[in-house]
């Protein structure tokens, strides 16, 4: 299979490829020389397995790439045409997609799944729809704290105005958004977060 690298991540490389003659994406977790082999092998296989399992559990519930095949270190999935929210400039469109992404996060949380890296870089705008991508740090958890941290990551990545739009989307889809929002306020009061600056960084 011919593979062309399109993104080099901290953890995995992402390649364009074809799967049964369809345009596809392969996400491969690469060996990290800095960590000992047993820990490295464990992290790569375990994370690949969990990521695929989560993506399959969310299929049909939210917009995300469909899983086509899985190996010990690679997930093959649908290729989603579009732009990451982090590099978009049309404010109106960003607002719309941010609201939809809030909706998708609420569905994930109601299924006891957290994303783990829920930022505009991991929301893909495809036409009028927002797709959630990169479930590399997702896991199954009922913990309110973990859900609140998803909200915190998004809050730190976007403006106040956009975050209130995002929360509107989250509220409208969540069974009960109060506990996570209450926990978010609590985490922010823990001191370490009070003064954390909000510099705009690329990505």
């Amino acid at each position: 299979m011919e593979m062309m690298m399109i993104a080099e991540g901290a953890e995995a490389n992402v390649y364009r490829c074809t799967f049964m003659n369809m345009p596809a994406i392969a996400k491969r977790r690469i060996r990290k020389q800095y960590r000992i082999e047993s820990l490295d092998t464990y992290l790569r296989t375990h994370r690949t397995k969990i990521e695929a399992k989560i993506m399959m559990a969310l299929a049909g519930k939210i917009n995300l790439p469909r899983v086509l095949a899985v190996s010990s270190d690679t997930i093959y999935m649908d290729f989603i045409e579009g732009k990451r929210l982090s590099i978009m400039t049309d404010e109106k469109a960003i607002g719309r997609h941010v609201e939809e992404s809030g909706h998708w996060l609420a569905v994930m949380h109601d299924n006891d799944i957290t994303h783990g890296d829920f930022t505009p870089a991991n929301i893909m705008a495809n036409g009028n729809s927002a797709y959630v991508i990169d479930f590399g740090l997702s896991y199954f958890t009922g913990s309110i704290e973990d859900k609140a941290i998803d909200l915190l990551l998004m809050k730190r990545s976007i403006s106040k105005e956009l975050f209130s739009i995002f929360i509107h989307g989250y509220d409208s889809a969540a069974k009960d958004s109060k506990p996570a929002k209450k926990k978010l306020a609590e985490i922010e009061l823990r001191g370490r977060y009070q003064l954390r600056s909000l510099a705009t960084v690329k990505g």
Partner: peptide
């Protein structure tokens, strides 16, 4: 020690990719 340092390296590497 291996676990803690690997965590720190992973976070650092991710920040490196983000900030270039």
């Amino acid at each position: 020690q291996e676990t803690a340092f690997s965590m720190l390296c992973e976070a650092t590497e991710r920040a490196l990719m983000l900030t270039e």
